[in-house]
Computed example of a mutant assay.
Amino acid sequence: METYQHLSIKEWALEDRPREKLLYKGLASLSDAELLAILIGSGSAKESAVELSKKILRDCQNNLNTLGKKTVNDLKLSYHGVGDAKAISIVASLELGRRRKLQETEERSKIASSQEVCDIFQPILGDLPHEEFWVLMLNRSNKVIAKNKVSQGGISGTVIDVRLILKSAIDHLASSIVLCHNHPSGNRQPSEADTKITKKMSEAGRIMDIPVLDHIIVTDDSYFSYADEGMI
């Protein structure tokens, strides 16, 4: 690919153009930069779409999860040649990927492990710049009845109301619940406040005969489980 560094994509050999490469060699043959180049369509007078895509990915440490956190304005303001249309194409495609992952996990409705809870919430919470607190409600067979967002906070915390969580569980006739929130910092370790609310919710759930099975803390690439660590 370096041979074509100063050529536009139209001047590349036919088999090296991203769209043609996809058609003739298949999706797996394309790099992340080439797939991104197909989305944005064109670069600028100084660089091809692939070169622009490589620059964008390099600034994201070649991590698609990091790219998924970028907004339309982030992309427009950071890269020459990226306007509304290109930025929207990138953001929309990554959102589709998140929704596909979420849909796949929702089809597996019976919860048997902390990983399965993480699979449900990571597409929802993993990329958020602020904290959100959610509750997963289960029936006696540990099948998902509902998932509710309880509260939304700032970068470092959120406030929850134990009574509202239990009321929602009762309204849904839940037999048990799982708590989940995210840490935008990327640090999956629980804070003292996290542990206090876990203990408070567990005690209240025990009284109401709606046990709290776990509390999951999600980051963009990992999670922490109170149950797995024997802390609930």
Rank of each mutant, 00 (worst) to 15 (best):
H6G: 00
L7I: 04
P18A: 14
L22W: 14
K25W: 07
A33Y: 09
E34G: 09
L35W: 06
G41P: 05
S42V: 04
G43Y: 11
S53L: 01
K54E: 15
D59R: 14
Q61L: 07
L64I: 08
L67V: 14
G68V: 10
G68M: 09
K69W: 02
K70R: 11
T71K: 11
N73K: 09
L75Q: 08
S78Q: 12
H80Y: 12
G81I: 04
A92W: 04
L94G: 10
L96Q: 12
G97W: 03
G97L: 14
R99M: 13
L102T: 03
E106N: 12
R108Q: 14
R108C: 07
I111Y: 00
S113D: 11
S114P: 13
V117F: 02
I124F: 05
P129K: 03
H130C: 13
F133N: 12
F133K: 05
W134G: 05
V135W: 02
M137T: 03
M137H: 08
K143Q: 14
V144D: 00
A146E: 10
N148L: 15
N148M: 13
K149C: 13
G154H: 05
I155M: 12
V162A: 14
V162N: 12
I165V: 15
A169Y: 04
I170R: 09
D171E: 15
H172T: 14
S175G: 08
H181I: 05
P184K: 05
Q189G: 06
Q189C: 06
P190S: 06
S191R: 12
E192G: 09
A193H: 03
K196M: 13
T198G: 09
S202L: 01
I207L: 05
D209G: 04
V212E: 00
L213E: 00
D221M: 10
Y226V: 08
A227Q: 08
D228C: 01
E229F: 01
E229S: 01
I232A: 01
